[in-house]
Design a protein around this nucleic acid. Structure first.
Lengths: 185, 185
DNA sequence: CGTTGCTGTTCGTCAAGCCGAACAAGGAGA
DNA sequence: TCTCCTTGTTCGGCTTGACGAACAGCAACG
């Protein structure tokens, strides 16, 4: 966790999330029930908001509280080979997905098991912003990752890649399987 | 994410985390650089702390910011068989553990891969309060779970059990392996 | 050109968070 | 018991965040 102070992060996050929704500063202030002067100062980096104020803004923006205080998680594609036990993006075509454990409140992590057979790769729609996918091959081989940069994964390989951008899964062997962790910020 | 207001959660979280470290209110206030009167009021539920104040406390407690505002998740023992794709506690004896992905800030989830050979079961020390372990067998068979209620797991079985109490792992076949997710609240 | 409506800004006032000191309560030791 | 140090509490003050209004800038419309 970073210790650089959350104020600058909050300022940037507020403006980013507000513009993501296409809301004006005035409109967001109205929805959140805070004075627009307060919001203006917060977005300009000045101020030290109370928890209640920031909470109201998070609700109005429909984002988790921590989204505003934690620095935007850089989610570059990260690849680790089985030999090194490193992260690698993986992607399968005809596959079945099974939700094993739903994300408990506060943990923000969903566990899936997917199995696939060789065939055309299957594209997955992008998830909400800030999503990261972890994939660990437990059987066979896969090709997975962002549509513009998929990575081939062998048994035991692990991959991590952004889940908020288009990505694909493709099984390269019969009976391929993998553990998939959907992670939200 | 919950929308019930973070103040009560903050009050409970502050006291819980402080007592977890065995710190007195006075000592925590000193380390965080906040007046102990302020901390006293926060723990009693009164007050509406500023982000800077709460941030200083989170740093002093060495917990991510969101740990203080998100409600704690309940973690009863939950078991699911492979046929049902349900959770089941698993436990192995002679084993090797490899950290694949360290817990990113706010996500509070560590990914491990463990491999084991048959032999005497190995007890794992209890982790910090609120820890939950997820285990998914990717090879062989395991017996794992709380020391007083271990569960046998076959290939593909999944188990979830509290990690803040003593538990064990025991591989039942040569070349057994599993994915282990350490989850913190 | 003036008006209306929006953008986001800055200002003064009031309320409230934060602080430090003073406080009561509980052990530990002489 | 009396003292000393700790625990966490409550109290006056200073500081600061939140509010609402007034403000300047820009675009569309009559």
């Amino acid at each position: 966790m970073d210790r650089t102070g959350p104020l600058a992060t909050i300022a940037a996050s507020l403006r980013r999330e507000r513009e993501r929704l296409g809301l004006s500063l005035t409109e967001l202030a109205r929805r959140a029930g805070v004075a627009k002067s307060t919001l203006s100062q917060l977005e300009s980096g000045a101020g030290n908001p109370s928890v209640e104020t920031l909470w109201a803004l998070a609700v109005a923006l429909d984002v988790p509280f921590s989204r505003l205080v934690d620095p935007p998680a850089a989610a570059p594609v990260h690849v680790i080979r089985a030999e090194d036990r490193v992260v690698i993006p993986s992607d399968t075509a005809p596959f079945t997905g099974t939700l094993i454990a739903a994300c408990p409140p506060g943990a923000r992590r969903d566990l899936h098991v997917i199995t696939g057979e060789p065939g055309p790769s299957r594209a997955a729609h992008a998830h909400i912003n800030g999503t990261t996918e972890h994939m660990l091959v437990t059987s066979g081989r896969w090709r997975a990752g962002p549509v513009d940069a998929p990575v081939e994964l062998a048994l035991g390989d692990y991959a991590r890649f952004p889940g908020d951008r288009p990505h694909t899964y493709e099984a390269l062997e019969a009976g391929s399987a993998a553990v998939l962790v959907m992670e939200y910020i």
